[in-house]
Design a protein around this nucleic acid. Structure first.
Length: 626
RNA sequence: GCCGACGUGGCUCAACGGCAGAGCAGCCGCCUUGUAAGCGGCAGGUUAUGGGUUCGAUUCCCAUCGUCGGCUCCA
């Protein structure tokens, strides 16, 4: 069951409002709905999409008269409808359905609403088991179409157009001719569980999209194409950053030299910032004994995500899915005084988690990854300050990598939870106050916290609008108990410290994936594996090109010389495609004047300048993370 | 894991029961070039893996592995 999200108004005027989850594809709608100052759900476009879903259902039912229909809502970038069909759908089915939809639209049918009673509904949908279940839920269980509890009693209604009647609360367009037949398109076929429950039947879902006019549809489609070009899996190959190979295993990443260099630069920066901010670096092994994971509770609560044990001299060891138990033991290695708190243990710890094969996704969702993990231990009175510190530290770091648009989620106490409710309340308050002080917009996910504590998650969107969690700041009321963590207070008594888990970039893998897509592969200069490519026009310029390269290398600039027997144009094209920030063309004029002719990857051509001038430009850009 | 689609040189793709091909990348040579692809040549594949059907399988069938789009999951 999904939790209800409550959006808190943004304090930061640069952050954008959201109607849902997909920022990228929402943007156009947002403009529309913001202009009209209405919510997406109340917009005409929403009606168009919802109505198009009904029209699609009609066309599918005509093709498959025995089809059972489930639900068909409008979503952020279109609509879908779920069906139970006698056979798998083919692309030809989709074409035929789409063609039929256009005809139905042109026939200009009115959409007519009828209020009905539950018994009328049961008679009307006697051969539609999913609708009967919906009626049941709406009537007695107080559940909406997603199976979530309803806050108020609803009146059942149907909408009818042409030959198709659906149980639906609406609203719809008045007439099908309000839909532009050239502005609709069926996009894909997918499997989807009835009511999102993997123990219930798998239905066939058709995704489609609909817009006000053809131009909007074209714009949407070209955005999808653009997104494909930004996809980190494509760019990972094109820029030779990383690979995943069959022979190694699914979800296991090989970092190539260029990707490795970007990772190394990222890690160096990360380390500098952590050292400057009061973190201690710790290291821990990749495996630990079964007893450790029993104490931590992972064998009880997390075992399905852990790999099979390794037997060593009769003892079972497990590959670590998390770093925390090790850090807890470092804390416990001696008696701690209140004077030494807060303690901040940081480690780029490589963990392995079993992820079901269907969920693996490039760098974003993998089976082995390195978390930039840290555990904070503090006194209760230090807790609000510690939260402030860590939230700001996270935001600051993400901004240093060029991320300015993220979404924050505050997840609060679930029904099943360990720990004193008073402590939960304190912690939730501290988290929320920090969020408010930070000025970013956030959503409250009521009851969405882990059983062991409330948390803040920071997420960003990938190229195709999917949201990925990077930072997480999580209270833990469980582990300090399980490991019996204590410190000696001013009063000479033992006290239980507060503990906070935090991952900042999340994992090196996912962060890299998000970074690639964020910059579409054109990394800022400080992160670019090759910062400058020297391009000699003819072979006689190679010696000078090498001198230029040596001078740049001496200044710490990462530079290569393209000595191939290609024409200058080809070298520029290749450097451009590799998204190298600076191209330095050197020919007779430059050799003679001791200059370089600068070209930027955006296509700008500042032209010839003394080498020293270029070095200053590059150094400034690097320092500014430009 | 589930539903569906798909796996052919490093990459992008063709051939779809009858000799496995192209472009790019790579290598060699020629050209010596002024802001996004100069020309020519060479080399490179047990068609993901394992079975089966067939005179013959890249092509048809089954299984496994993987990829993609969803769903579910995501301490």
């Amino acid at each position: 069951m999904s939790h209800r999200l409550i959006w808190v108004e943004p304090r930061d005027p640069t952050s954008r409002p959201s109607n849902g989850e997909r920022l990228v594809f929402l943007s156009y709608q947002e403009v529309l709905t913001m202009e009209e100052n209405i919510k997406y759900e109340d917009s005409f476009l929403y009606r168009i999409r919802h109505s198009t879903a009904h029209i699609m259902a009609q066309a599918v039912l005509e093709r498959f008269p025995t089809a059972k229909i489930a639900i068909g809502p409008a979503i952020d970038d279109g609509f879908y409808y779920d069906f139970d069909l006698p056979r798998p759908l083919t692309p030809e089915d989709l074409e035929a359905v789409e063609a039929r939809m256009r005809t139905i639209i042109k026939e200009d049918h009115p959409f007519v609403r009828h209020a009905i009673s539950a018994s009328e509904g049961r008679a009307l949908f006697a051969d539609q088991p999913f609708k009967l279940e919906l009626i049941e839920g709406l009537e007695s269980g107080g559940l909406d179409e997603d199976g979530n509890p309803l806050t108020e009693k609803v009146e059942l209604s149907t909408y009818t157009h042409a030959t198709f009647t659906d149980l639906c609360r609406g609203p719809h367009v008045d007439h099908t001719n309000q839909i532009n037949p050239k502005a609709i398109k069926l996009m894909s076929i997918a499997g989807a569980y009835w009511r999102g429950d993997e123990h219930r039947p798998m239905l066939q879902r058709i995704y489609g999209t609909a817009w006000n006019n053809e131009a909007e549809l074209d714009e949407y489609l070209s955005k999808i194409e653009e997104a494909k070009r930004r996809d980190h899996r494509r760019l990972g190959k094109e820029l030779d950053l990383y690979s995943v190979v069959d022979d190694v295993g699914a979800g296991l990443i090989l970092w190539h030299p260029k990707g490795g260099l970007i990772r190394k630069i990222t890690e160096n920066y990360w380390e500098d910032r952590h050292l400057a901010s009061g973190y201690d670096f710790v290291y821990s092994p990749h495996i630990g004994k079964a007893t450790l994971w029993e104490t931590s509770g992972h064998l009880g609560f997390y075992r399905e995500n852990m790999y099979s044990p390794i037997e060593i001299e009769g003892q079972e060891y497990f590959l670590k899915p998390m770093n925390c138990p090790f850090h807890l033991h470092i804390y416990k290695s001696r008696t701690r005084s209140y004077r030494e708190l807060p303690l901040r243990f940081a480690e780029k710890g490589t963990v392995y988690r079993y992820e079901r094969s269907g969920v693996l996704h490039g760098l974003m969702r993998v089976r082995g990854f390195t978390q930039d993990d840290a555990h904070h231990f503090c006194r209760p009175d230090q807790m609000p300050g510690e939260i402030d510190f860590v939230l700001n530290f996270c935001l600051d770091m993400l901004r240093a990598f060029g991320f300015n648009e993220f979404k924050a989620y505050l997840s609060t106490m679930p029904e099943k939870a360990v720990g004193d409710p008073e402590k939960w309340k304190d912690a939730e308050e501290a988290l929320e106050k920090s969020l408010k002080r930070s000025g970013i917009s956030y959503a409250v996910d009521q009851g969405g916290g882990a059983f062991y504590g409330p948390k803040i998650d920071l997420k960003v969107n990938d190229a195709i609008g999917r949201e990925w969690q990077l930072s997480t700041i999580q209270f833990d009321f469980n582990m300090p108990e399980r490991f019996d963590l204590t410190y000696i207070g001013e009063d000479g008594q033992e006290h239980r410290p507060y503990m906070v888990h935090r991952a900042l970039l999340g994992s090196m893998e996912r962060f890299f994936g998000v970074l690639i897509e964020h910059y579409a592969g054109a990394f800022p200069v400080w992160l670019s594996p090759v910062q400058a490519m020297v391009i000699p026009i003819a072979d006689r310029h190679i010696a000078y090109a090498q001198q230029v390269a040596e001078a740049l290398t001496a200044q710490g600039i990462r530079v290569s010389v393209d000595e191939r027997g290609e024409r200058m144009n080809a070298k520029i094209r290749d450097a451009q495609n590799q998204k190298i920030p600076y191209m330095l063309v050197v020919g007779d004029k430059e050799v003679e004047a001791g200059q370089v002719a600068l070209r930027l990857r955006a296509g700008d051509n500042p032209g010839a300048m003394p080498l020293a001038e270029f070095i200053q430009i590059a150094k400034d850009d690097i320092a500014n993370h430009a």
